[in-house]
Design a binder for these strands. Structure first.
Length: 574
DNA sequence: GCCGTTTTCGGCCCGACTGTTTTCAGTCG
């Protein structure tokens, strides 16, 4: 049984306990589910070697839940879960995924209307049966239908990189409101998560009611869920929900901290406050009635005895301890990238010529790029064979001669295809001539974990391969990652000095933050590339930098955050 | 049910808004 299946069952149990009004157990099961979700290894694997003791190493998993998981491995189920399922034969997770529907409502819907799943609920709502229930009305019924509609059309989340430009223009508009002293988008956008479910906007103002009025007049707004004097929740025309909160200027820092999250990070901060006998909320840090910090985020962290923690690190994944011990890394900066090592041109499936890409990269502030068109086994892209690659090298030489006074360099590269058995589709004597040889898998996504791991490691062992592009091949909202033993991959990368790419394209972001952190810890170098297929895609490098920062990477960890000479020297000597 | 520089019991984050309520439970972030 996979981690994914286990955490789904744990989440179900949490919801069942909540339906029954049991205290604390819901949070305990939720915490265990989160622990498994973020655990790097498969629980079944560690159970095989270390039993329930090993399972209890997972954060949030104690004796009780470890026992349940053991039964899941042995029998596929356990008693409490079976009892709940018998009592409530319903799709509780599907139902609570609807905006505004929680466990208590699910219980009522089941008991009164025999609602088992989302389509039952939709039918009941359309038939006007919801409004007849006690404590429900016509509005609740409409709200449920809208929630179902949204869930259907968007799956609830969007890739941040695709929405970021729009979010920034919304932020700018609010900043320009005359009554607004400061405004910033907080939440998962500020933490640069891969995908976002909503936009949390924070504004400081003396006249919150006026700000809300102005906000509701903005052209982006499709629907208003809730409006108050300090908090308004709307749906934007782009399908995202936006939440605007207005606070007094004195509370700006505390509020920004609170609304940036993550929830887990905030809880940990509040616990530190409690230990000191204080209270932390979105209005400030309080000692009794007296506010002792909150004007700036820096002030809040300082008062709590912490160094300032960058938003991308706020996940309660060790950053608080590091901040206490003054051991936070100095993260790579958003303007540190000097070159881009993966892009495609009209030689294969890109939209623009080599020269157009070079010019666009220059305007994006880059000093060098590598042209990495696909290779021959990707026939549908017009992938290059050895001859075509050699021709492209000549074309690149020509462009470099043309631009030699501009201190900008186009490197010769390729996105060489990794075959099923881990060999490459380009001969070694041609690979040797490239400045940057990236290798990537584009097929055979369903190989077993062992085969897939062996395949990628074999590609890394080719001394001509510099970088593995988009290691896990996942596409957000489209397909999951290939099965890999990531620890073995990182070991092999370390041994062969192979660079692992952080592909910055918004629905790839591959490798993910958790793996970035493993690379940082193991001393494996990475490259942040746009994977641009058009001159408009260089802007996505920012998403890759965000991903690197979420994985605690410093400038030293990223080879293309260095000048060309240094970067090439690294590739040559590796 | 989990957890521990207030350790093996007694805690477990905190506040805003909605709807349908004459005082608050439920949901969300």
């Amino acid at each position: 049984m996979t981690n994914r299946e286990i955490l789904k069952i744990l989440r179900e149990i949490a919801a069942f306990f909540e339906m029954e009004g049991v205290s604390f157990k819901p949070q305990a099961y939720e915490a265990a589910a989160l622990g498994i979700e973020t655990y790097a290894r498969e629980a079944e694997e560690i159970y095989k070697t270390g039993g329930t003791d090993a399972l209890m190493e997972i954060p949030g998993v104690g004796k009780g839940i470890a026992g349940h998981i053991e039964e899941l491995f042995k029998k596929g189920s356990f008693k409490e879960y079976r009892d709940f399922k018998r009592k409530y034969p319903i799709d509780v997770l599907g139902l609570v995924a609807i905006e505004g529907v929680g466990p208590k409502m699910v219980k009522l819907l089941w008991e009164k209307l025999r609602v088992r799943a989302v389509n039952d609920l939709e039918k009941a709502a359309r038939a006007g049966k919801i409004r007849a229930l006690e404590r429900f009305g016509e509005k609740s019924e409409q709200k449920i239908l809208k929630g179902i509609e949204f869930l259907k059309q968007s799956g609830g989340r969007q890739a941040l990189g695709f929405a970021l430009a729009e979010i920034r223009s919304l932020e700018k508009m609010i900043q320009l409101f005359p009554e607004v002293a400061r405004a910033l988008v907080a939440g998962s956008v500020r933490r640069r998560k891969e995908t976002i479910g909503d936009i949390d906007i924070l504004a400081a103002s003396k006249r919150p009611a006026r700000v809300m009025e102005q906000f509701l007049k903005l052209p982006f707004i499709a629907h208003v869920y809730a409006k108050g004097t300090t908090k308004t929740l709307v749906k934007l025309k782009n399908g995202l929900d936006a939440d605007l909160r207005v606070v007094p200027k004195e509370s700006w820092g505390a509020a920004l901290n609170y609304f940036t999250g993550s929830k887990e990070h905030n809880i940990a901060l509040r616990e530190i406050a409690i230990q000191k006998g204080w209270k932390l909320n979105e209005y400030g840090l309080f000692k009794g009635e007296k506010m002792i910090a909150g004007r700036t985020e820096e002030e809040v962290y300082e008062k709590l005895g912490l160094r300032y923690i960058e938003p991308e690190m706020r996940e309660n994944m060790g950053e608080i301890k590091a901040a206490q011990e003054n051991k936070l890394p100095r993260l790579i900066g958003y303007s540190d990238i000097q070159g881009d090592l993966q892009m495609q041109t009209d030689w294969t499936d890109g939209e623009n010529s080599i020269e157009e890409m070079a010019r666009a990269a220059m305007s994006a502030g880059l000093r060098y790029i590598a042209i990495t068109d696909h290779t021959k086994s990707l026939a549908m892209t017009g992938g290059a064979d050895e001859k075509k690659l050699l021709r492209q090298m000549e074309a690149i030489d020509k462009i470099n001669r043309k631009y030699k006074d501009l201190k900008f360099k186009v490197l010769k590269g390729a996105e060489v295809n990794i075959m099923k058995n881990g060999t490459l589709d380009i001969e070694d004597d041609v690979l040797k001539k490239l400045d940057v040889a990236g290798a990537a898998a584009h097929s055979h996504f369903t190989l077993s974990r062992a085969e897939q791991t062996k395949r990628i490691i074999r590609a890394m062992e080719n001394p001509n391969v510099d970088i593995i592009f988009h290691l896990t091949t996942r596409v957000i909202h489209k397909r999951g990652p290939i099965e890999l033993d990531i620890d073995e991959i990182i070991k092999a990368a370390r041994r062969t000095n192979t660079v692992l790419e952080i592909d910055a394209y918004p629905d790839r972001l591959d490798i993910k933050d958790e793996y970035v952190r493993k690379c940082v810890d193991a001393g494996v170098k990475m490259a942040i590339d746009s994977d641009a297929h058009s001159v408009n895609h260089f802007k996505y490098l920012e998403m890759g930098i965000g991903q690197a920062r979420r994985g605690w990477a410093t400038r030293g960890d990223i080879i293309n955050a260095h000048p060309l000479k240094e970067m090439l020297k690294f590739l040559k000597e590796r």
